[in-house]
Amino acid sequence: MSKKRAGVVAAVLSGLALAFTSTVAHADEGLDVIAHRGSSGMAPENTAAAIDLAVDQRADFVEIDVQRTKDGKLVNFHDCTMERTTDVEEVFPNRPSYRVSDFTWAELRRLDAGSWFHDNFAGERLITVDDVISHIRNTDTGLLAEISPCGHYVGIATDFAQNLTGKPRYVQRALAREQLAVQSFQVDDAQEFHALMPDVPIGFLDADRPTEQELVQLSQWADQVNPQHTVTDQALVDRVHELGMDINVWTVDEPGAMRRMAGLGVDGIITDFPQSLTQR
Rank of each mutant, 00 (worst) to 15 (best):
C80K: 07
S101T: 03
T23N: 06
V240P: 00
N46D: 08
D272F: 11
N46G: 04
Q234S: 13
V66I: 10
A10I: 02
P198N: 10
S22H: 06
I202M: 13
L164G: 13
D131F: 02
G72D: 07
P168E: 08
E124Y: 04
T21P: 00
L111M: 10
R173I: 02
D208W: 12
R259G: 03
V55N: 08
A262R: 15
A17Y: 05
A176G: 10
A50C: 04
L175G: 06
G123I: 05
L143W: 07
T230E: 14
A54M: 12
E89L: 13
M261E: 14
D233F: 03
L205Q: 06
H241T: 04
M42H: 15
A174V: 14
L13D: 12
G265R: 03
M261R: 08
V9R: 08
K4F: 15
E90V: 09
A190L: 12
L205H: 04
H118F: 11
V200A: 11
V182D: 10
R259F: 03
D60G: 12
A113N: 11
D199W: 03
I156S: 03
D131K: 07
D246K: 15
G142L: 13
T69M: 12
V231Y: 02
A49T: 01
A257R: 13
V55F: 14
S39K: 03
V171R: 09
G203S: 10
Q57P: 12
T69V: 09
L243I: 10
D233A: 10
H36V: 07
F204R: 15
T104H: 06
P227N: 09
T232Q: 05
V225F: 06
V200D: 12
A6V: 04
Q217K: 15
V154N: 07
F193I: 02
A207G: 07
D206I: 01
A48H: 01
Q217M: 15
S219H: 12
A59T: 09
D188H: 10
E124N: 00
I269P: 01
D112F: 10
V237G: 07
D206H: 09
V171T: 04
T271Q: 07
K73V: 15
L215I: 08
R95C: 00
E242N: 09
D102N: 14
G151L: 06
Q162E: 15
N76K: 07
R173K: 15
V8T: 12
H36G: 06
L108K: 01
D52G: 04
F61S: 06
L16H: 08
G263Y: 05
G265I: 01
E192T: 14
A19W: 13
D208C: 02
Q220T: 15
L16Y: 12
N76C: 15
Y170T: 09
V55A: 13
P93C: 10
T232H: 02
D32V: 00
R5Y: 05
E242Q: 15
P44Q: 01
P44G: 03
F193M: 10
T23H: 11
H78F: 02
G123C: 05
D79K: 05
L18M: 12
Q191T: 03
A195W: 10
D238R: 06
